[in-house]
Design a protein around this nucleic acid. Structure first.
Lengths: 165, 165
DNA sequence: CCGAACGTTCAATTTATATTGAACGGATTA
DNA sequence: TAATCCGTTCAATATAAATTGAACGTTCGG
């Protein structure tokens, strides 16, 4: 490690590996890492030039990062381009990214569980395998309980504390 | 929805979509869903037959699920096959899966940050751009603080409470 | 208006990842 | 010891996802 840019390069590469391992491509991490270590706001073209990525990818990645609060658009007087600087509330960013990931699925699940429960309860009388129905009901309830606890956790004090800032 | 197996099928399909969206393939979710809704322990061949997946995939998936505590091996008297039943401590399972995901990267990051910090501190005197060095140091520290807070959160009481059971 | 500068979109492509299935080795039984 | 039954491994393949880049619409400046 001989220059400040070496520090940047390694940090950015590591950020890319992390976001890749987490299932958002490399570019997301590269972009955030680059802006995070930039003292001045960066334009889309800056990102493309600095990281060697396409404008299309930069545009889409930037939007996702914005939704997480990881990038903020800043307006520079009399400039036509958009500029971005890094959001620094890492906890909140992590929370939004995680919610983004989990949320893709979660909504439909509640409905599925409720519907299954309803049907199973209706079957208890007229089935030839009441034990099986009872077993399934038990499992559905078990799963619903977990979902309740998980929701509670997300609203608990310590979690909120970390994720505010 | 006309039979108990319809309930199973939809549950299993949903589980597969979730694990897929989370970046572990579909089979992981299918397998756990199937065993979770099975009253009796399941063998590898049971899984292959019920889900239409290969033995290789079943073997690998089962191992990962075991590491998360999502499946437990049970021995059945005088049987040569391995049998599996579902672990029901969903919180703990989720935690381990998340740790598995995050942990792939985390270790090396601490080292990278520490090394960067060391180098930057050594440069403060003999550089031509002291402001840039100072800026990078600030960001590195900011990131380290977040990591500290995140670790603290994972050991906090409410999180432990949810994840025990 | 016209032309250039930008950001966005999306089909095509590349890249990464999950999944398969044939080959292998250990263990059990005859 | 040979034959079979199982689970595992890993190179090949199939599948999913990220990334590109050309085409497009909009906005701004001249």
């Amino acid at each position: 490690m001989r220059t400040a840019d070496d520090v940047r390069a390694r940090f950015i590469a590591a950020a890319g590996e992390i976001t890749q391992a987490l299932g958002f491509g490399r570019n997301i991490g590269h972009i955030y890492g680059h802006v995070y270590l930039s003292a001045r706001p960066q334009s889309l073209d800056d990102l493309c030039a600095a990281l060697g990525i396409s404008k299309g990818s930069a545009s889409m990645s930037v939007r996702q990062l914005e939704q997480w609060g990881a990038l903020k658009r800043v307006w520079i007087r009399g400039a036509r381009r958009d500029y971005f600087e890094a959001g620094l509330e890492l906890g909140r960013i992590a929370r939004k990214a995680a919610a983004d990931m989990a949320g893709r699925t979660d909504e439909s699940v509640g409905e599925l569980l409720a519907e299954s429960e309803r049907w199973l309860k209706g079957q208890r009388r007229n089935t030839r395998s009441p034990e099986d129905i009872a077993f399934l009901l038990e499992r559905i309830h078990h799963m619903q309980q977990f979902r309740t606890r998980a929701r509670w956790l997300l609203n608990s004090a310590p979690v909120r504390l970390l994720l505010k800032k």
